[in-house]
């Protein structure tokens, strides 16, 4: 039988002294510790989003792993002026999750990459947006969502968390496409108005 030696354990990075941008630079440089820290920082949000969209814990974990690997491989594509690292990362999770639920539908025919996964649009495309007022408390956002009409909230959530296209939303809700578009637009504008002026979490 072999003898086993072990290296001394390495102290974990100090999350308090490392910004998300620092971590992303670490990802771009291929530093596993940076990925580990970023994962620890956002795993619960990422998994929460993926699970909300997929309603499947196993699929949600697949989505989270794909999303973090996408960030790992493409960290150098992050554009600082187009939103925070947090938003960029969670947008990747969101896109991946939507792709996953659409791929799961038997009627959906989506192109796939060589490895079978869809191209993570947020890595390369202009689909990542900044924040209305910086990072907001969850209760604040929930209160803002509550200001939407039921029809607006339904349309927005069927799209954003249900992964339905406008055609599918129209079928589901029994309203014309134009009405779907209008409800989503008005819902988002109402949400924005409700959020503007709120101080970001932790701001003074």
């Amino acid at each position: 039988m072999s003898d086993i030696r072990s290296l001394p354990p390495t102290a974990p990075p100090d999350p308090g002294g490392i910004t998300d941008e620092d971590l992303l630079a670490g990802l771009a440089a291929g530093t596993l510790d940076a990925l580990d820290t970023l994962y620890e920082r956002y795993k619960t949000m990422a998994f929460g989003i993926a699970r909300r969209i997929t309603a499947d814990d196993v699929l949600a974990e697949d989505v989270v792993q794909e999303a973090f690997l996408g960030a790992w491989r493409n960290a150098d594509r992050y554009v600082a002026g187009k939103g925070s690292v947090r938003t960029w990362l969670l947008s990747i999770v969101h896109h991946r999750a939507i792709d996953a639920v659409r791929r799961r539908r038997p009627t959906t025919d989506l192109p796939a990459d060589d490895d079978g996964s869809l191209t993570p649009a947020p890595l390369t495309m202009p689909d990542v947006w900044g924040e209305v007022s910086g990072r907001l408390d969850r209760e604040v956002v929930l209160a803002a969502v509550a200001t939407l009409s039921d029809a607006q909230r339904e349309a927005v959530e069927l799209a954003y968390f249900g992964g339905l296209t406008q055609v599918e939303i129209a079928d589901r809700t029994g309203v014309p496409l134009g009405t779907v578009k209008s409800r989503v637009r008005l819902g988002l504008l109402a949400l924005r108005r409700a959020l503007e002026g709120h101080a970001p979490e932790g701001a003074t």
Binding site: W72, W129, G130, V141
Partner: peptide, 30 residues
């Protein structure tokens, strides 16, 4: 304008803890 509002919806999600094994799988893959 609309995208920023949509992004805020991510903050309505309840965070949830993934399984402990996911971290190992991710780091191994990386």
């Amino acid at each position: 304008e609309l995208g920023e509002a949509a992004t805020a919806l991510l903050d309505t999600v309840e965070p949830a803890e993934p399984s402990a094994g996911l971290r190992g799988q991710l780091m191994a893959a990386a």
